[in-house]
Design a protein around this nucleic acid. Sequence first.
DNA 1: CCGGCAAAGTTGTCTGACAACTCTGCACAG
DNA 2: CTGTGCAGAGTTGTCAGACAACTTTGCCGG
Lengths: 245, 245
Amino acid sequence: MTTHARRSLRHRIADELRALVLSGELPPGAQLPSEPELARRMQVSRSSLRSAIALLEEEGLLRPVHGSGTYVNDRPLLRDDLSRNLSGTEMIAATGRTPGARLTEARLEAAPPEVAAAFGLPDGTPLSALRRVRTADGEPVIDTTDWCRPEVLDPVAMADPAGGSVYQALAERGLAIHHGVATMRPAMADARVAERLEVPEGSLLLTLFQTDSTADGVVALVSLEIYPADAFLISVYRRGPGDES
Amino acid sequence: MTTHARRSLRHRIADELRALVLSGELPPGAQLPSEPELARRMQVSRSSLRSAIALLEEEGLLRPVHGSGTYVNDRPLLRDDLSRNLSGTEMIAATGRTPGARLTEARLEAAPPEVAAAFGLPDGTPLSALRRVRTADGEPVIDTTDWCRPEVLDPVAMADPAGGSVYQALAERGLAIHHGVATMRPAMADARVAERLEVPEGSLLLTLFQTDSTADGVVALVSLEIYPADAFLISVYRRGPGDES
DNA sequence: CCGGCAAAGTTGTCTGACAACTCTGCACAG
DNA sequence: CTGTGCAGAGTTGTCAGACAACTTTGCCGG
């Protein structure tokens, strides 16, 4: 391996294997070539290949069986798996529709209590806020609000972020998002949200309050997303209750 | 390593490390001993230790930094993280309340369409169904229905499962649950659910439809769980958008 | 006081070997 | 002909040692 990127080798190998599976080249149930063989073909060491396979096993995509081989799991393909997919744009694109946005509005505003708490700041601290209604094929499907510290991104930078996405703009400022924690609640549409999402007042919604942090635990972005009840099938892949027999 | 268990070595090492972190012996931000040192102490090879660390990195618990060391992440502890926690009993216990159940009712019934589809069976196939209202300190918090194939567990076995939990009863019959996929929807309480959960009719609910599968993709259990809006904070840990910088 | 550099320490990857396990197919007894 | 047992080949799991790539520390010279 002479071609070096930033991601570690095992992640790049995992990407390559994942692509093979998702493209259907390795159909569900299929057995992978043996590790030495595959390592030779991909020009990597067996240990790096094994690390990659371990990642994909953890993801639930592959299933190595001692003494037999490594197989492709045929679990339902979750394009909208919450635990792997941070961005609303991707969720929309994954359903095959064209993502868009309207009613974009960015300004400095006082942090609501829940948001301030997530950042660990006092109530009312001024924050950059970006409000959008995201659309799929022109139809409104998510009402989102993103908050971040103004010294990191000012409202103007949030509304038109470098690199196209707020995540990338944050990454360029040294705040690459490592993980997020999302909390879900059912809700009913009040007049304001009903108008923005073009649904009847009082109709069912799912709200998702999320705090995104960097690898060292700094909260970099907080967002509130509001979905009409049936805009998406919001799913989560859950691991089994330990391997205890 | 002469002491053999069922779980693979790296999982056992990971368990040990996880315990060290959760017990507070390795506080957030702390640097682990170096890999060679730790491997020597735990009497395992460095490669096995590295595999374990990779697992915990994927879990978000540890953060190895090339050339520097491996550190404990201080991410918020999610007691009710959906993506790691399958059982309603555990969710209740994690909030510090005492789990219980009432209105337990088990019988053979025709599979509703959505359930039949999850099993890949025709509509109306008879299935074992177990209906319960689970309680926390006596207060109703989840209305659950579990379905499984009657040749695996008959209604009587479901109502009083060997080993105490349906999961364990399934595992003893060679159907250990490996993963599940849960889909969330907001809903409103109809008369029946309102009475069972002791909430006003029309109040907000979160429903969670889940299919649990074995390692080879066989659907072993399907369940529908209904939560009052504020019974739990249902959260998900989401990985960041790739490591691309 | 500051900048640069070398050295020590750490994680990432490679190579080769053997152990543990699974699966296939053949020989052999019934 | 059939079923059983066993040996062998093939595969994943683990081990050991080495070097590369990177970070951090601290010294030295300006």
